[in-house]
Design a protein around this nucleic acid. Structure first.
Lengths: 70, 70
DNA sequence: TTATTTTGTAAAATATGCTTGACATATGGA
DNA sequence: TCCATATGTCAAGCATATTTTACAAAATAA
């Protein structure tokens, strides 16, 4: 998992700090930070809450197209 | 969380048992069963693996539109 | 500069996703 | 009938998501 720059960008577009978003979706600030840094693997429920807070869908923030091999 | 009938349906469309899908995405059969029954809250990584196995995206299997409240 | 906010990071504890093994029921085929 | 497959469910334990507390660095504003 790499960094989630789409999440970071969507959050910035709404002028929210990591802490603001954390409060909105009721997790700790560190959890938001870790998700943006790609350090782990949140639950679908949390991803959905983040999407709703930012006006995006799962595909927009969390779906990654599979790269072709060769 | 209610039952995930879209998942159940997408799995049936590919003629896979819960166990078949579990093997494909490398979790236990009970985990697939619990997800279809809406009993918990899988990780985004597992949801993504399930989507890839079934040729669907996160929005198609796991996104739920918000109902308007009056 | 100083003060404030934001982000990064770490360690210990808690909550919960997920596994393992087991047993029950329903279904369809031989 | 018997046999195999598919699904549902439970309990104990392991693996890991998330919290809490804390400290530090970078950015922003006064």
């Amino acid at each position: 998992m790499g960094k989630n720059l789409r999440l970071k960008s969507a959050r910035a577009a709404m002028d929210l700090s990591q802490n603001d978003l954390a409060v909105l979706v009721q997790v700790s600030r560190q959890t938001i930070n870790a998700i943006e840094k790609g350090e782990y693997n949140p639950t679908i429920r949390l991803c959905t809450a983040i999407c709703r807070a930012l006006g995006k869908t799962l595909d927009e923030l969390f779906w990654e197209e599979q790269h072709e091999n060769s």
